[in-house]
């Protein structure tokens, strides 16, 4: 006994029109992201064209950065980025894993919840604040005790030659370590908490101590998550700009010593874009392209490795 009235019909078609309009307008807004990403890539590559054509592959392998001769290559900055990121990983990852183990395996719930929250809050501190902290709090400690000690103890290696100045690759590496800890610790914690209790019980029932069961059952089970967390931290360290620019000393040189100043891909752009034009600007943008590709690859790797554990974690490319 269906008797579609005119009224019904018009209401239905109006509703479907409304829904269509709604659907396509929201879709359009979402498509803006694609457009933005596309224009970003196109614009970067387009503006880098002059530099790419002028220097070719030498851009990545040569060490000259000389505005007087209008010669620009990126190796010192790639090197600086690798050095500072390596220091960040070496210092930051063990600390992060320690934090994650405490939170996931040892801390009672009333400590775990607020402490996890505080650690995640650290990720929200603007990087310029970290930069200021490094200059006014970290630097005196470095020049006063840490760097003289390192020079005494490890001065025979190429990594700790020079003067204890406190504005150098070591300072940048340390501040990067601090900045990656929230990400690495919380993603590691999540992957440790995802380890089933039956694994811990398996180890304990064999007569493992708490330490042994953490190593045997938890760390090995969660290792891909922890590795992914590390790569994610690397992604942040590679792209971080402000705190590094403030602490690295901005010297366009390649030096193995962590006590020498340096320059990263991100910091050389931040330092020079204001007065750059012509070929120099194009070269800076090409460095940006390289950085963009590296950061993208690192983030994609991390995503693939951590998978479901880190659905909630946004990509970290650093930033001002």
């Amino acid at each position: 006994m269906m008797r579609p009235t005119r009224k019904h019909g018009s209401r239905r078609s109006r509703a479907s029109l409304e829904d269509k309009l709604f659907k396509y307008s929201v879709m359009g807004i979402a498509a803006l992201v694609l457009a933005l990403l596309w224009s970003l890539v196109v614009k970067l590559v387009f503006d880098a064209q002059t530099s790419i054509e002028t220097f070719g592959i030498d851009f990545l392998t040569s060490t000259i950065w000389d505005p007087n001769r209008d010669l620009y290559t990126a190796l010192p900055f790639i090197f600086g980025t690798l050095m500072t990121s390596a220091v960040a990983i070496v210092i930051g990852v063990p600390i992060s894993i320690g934090i994650a183990i405490y939170l996931s395996e040892l801390a009672p719930a009333w400590i775990r919840e607020p402490l996890s929250f505080l650690i995640e809050l650290l990720a929200a501190v603007p990087s310029v604040i970290y930069g200021l902290w490094a200059i006014y709090t970290l630097r005196p400690v470095l020049t006063g005790s840490v760097e003289p000690f390192l020079m005494d103890a490890l001065g025979w290696t190429p990594f700790f030659e020079g003067a204890a100045f406190g504005i150098d690759k070591l300072a940048s590496g340390i501040i990067l370590a601090v900045m990656i800890i929230p990400t690495v610790a919380s993603v590691s914690k999540e992957s440790m908490m995802a380890v089933p209790d039956s694994q811990r019980e398996a180890a304990l029932s064999l007569g493992a101590t708490k330490y042994e069961s953490t190593r045997m059952a938890v760390l090995s089970y969660a290792r891909s998550g922890i590795f992914g967390a590390t790569i994610l931290g690397l992604g942040r360290a590679v792209g971080e700009t402000m705190a590094v620019t403030m602490t690295i000393g901005n010297a366009n040189i390649i030096s193995w010593s962590l006590l020498d100043p340096g320059q990263t891909m991100a910091s050389v752009i931040a330092n020079n874009w204001g007065e750059a034009d012509g070929l120099m600007l194009s070269s800076l943008i090409e460095i940006g392209v390289v950085l963009f590709i590296v950061a993208l690859l690192i983030n994609v790797c991390a995503r693939l490795m951590v998978g479901r554990v880190m659905k909630a974690v946004p990509m970290t490319g650093g930033g001002l």
Partner: peptide
């Protein structure tokens, strides 16, 4: 820990260590 070395246990759901080989599981 000493008690558990003398009194072994097998659980409801099989729980071998997934990152270890059969050999390494046995000698864990």
């Amino acid at each position: 820990v000493e008690v558990r070395r003398k009194v072994g246990m097998v659980f409801q759901k099989p729980n071998p260590f997934p990152t270890m080989s059969i050999y390494d599981n046995v000698v864990a």
